[in-house]
């Protein structure tokens, strides 16, 4: 069984996978882990090769678009220690094409698909749960702390939905932000965040929404358990309707 090392980046991971799939005798038995930089680490180090990484990803997109999709969200999940499963998954994806996701009896496929699905689920959830506040200059700001690194696809969603406004989405935990300004989307990091002043009407609109939220529930059917299972408390921090609860 051969053991390989890579540098810990997403690109490095793809580069290593590309090399192993091309050269190893049985890639689905190989092991791939992140290099730890200890002196006597066991294994062959494969460095990042941007071209090889891109070639592999493009090939995946053509031959197994579903698997490319799964892979994209797997990376956003920022899950550590699953490189070997991913390597096996990629190798199988190139062999079977889109059908690979149906092979849930295989543990590598199952692990990758499960992790990827979790990221996709959170993205879907956040499309609903993100809350924008109007700032004094007329732009809108949303803050969030998702488990997965979903800023990019989430910003993509809002760039189709709120095209006519200027807005920011700020991932508080990762200190990354997306900015939509006169029709273009930018992604970047924010070192120092100071909350800007809200527009004058903001509190009035928030009060209206809070009132609606309270009134729309059927009083005799209170069900806090169902509410929490659909909308876990970890998301409440930035929910307008859950302020002051």
């Amino acid at each position: 069984m051969s053991r390989y090392l890579y540098d810990g980046t997403a690109e490095g991971l793809l580069s290593a996978a590309a090399r192993i799939i091309a050269e190893a005798s049985d890639p689905e038995k190989a092991i791939l882990v992140e290099r730890e930089n200890t002196l006597f680490e066991d294994g062959v180090f494969i460095g990042t090769d941007a071209v090889a990484a891109e070639t592999l990803f493009n090939r995946l997109r053509q031959e197994a678009p579903d698997a490319a999709h799964t892979f994209y969200y797997f990376i956003l999940a920022e899950k550590e220690g699953m490189e070997t499963s991913l390597l096996h998954y990629l190798s199988m994806a190139l062999r079977y094409g889109n059908r690979v996701n149906g092979n849930l009896a295989d543990s590598a496929v199952r692990d990758v698909v499960t992790v990827s699905r979790k990221a996709q689920r959170e993205l879907h959830r956040m499309k609903g749960l993100v809350r924008f506040e109007k700032l004094r200059d007329g732009a809108y700001l949303a803050r969030m702390e998702p488990d997965h690194n979903i800023l990019q696809p989430l910003a993509g969603h809002f760039s189709r939905r709120l095209r006519a406004e200027d807005w920011f989405i700020y991932d508080v935990r990762r200190r990354t932000a997306a900015r939509w300004h006169s029709g273009t989307l930018q992604l970047g990091t924010i070192e120092q965040f100071t909350a800007p002043a809200l527009s004058e009407e903001e509190m009035r609109i928030q009060a209206l929404w809070q009132a609606f939220f309270k009134t729309i529930a059927i009083p005799d059917r209170k069900n806090p358990r169902l509410q929490k299972s659909n909308m876990p408390m970890k998301y409440w921090k930035y929910l307008t309707e859950k302020q002051g609860e």
Binding site: G128, R160, R161, G183, F213, I216, R221, L226, M231
Partner: peptide, 22 residues
């Protein structure tokens, strides 16, 4: 959505919150 307007709808439907009755 149109380029100057606001909003689109999405095929799967999106829940934005869950009321006190779940």
């Amino acid at each position: 959505g149109s380029s100057s307007g606001i909003g689109n709808t999405s095929q799967g439907g999106i829940c934005h919150s869950w009321a006190d009755d779940g």
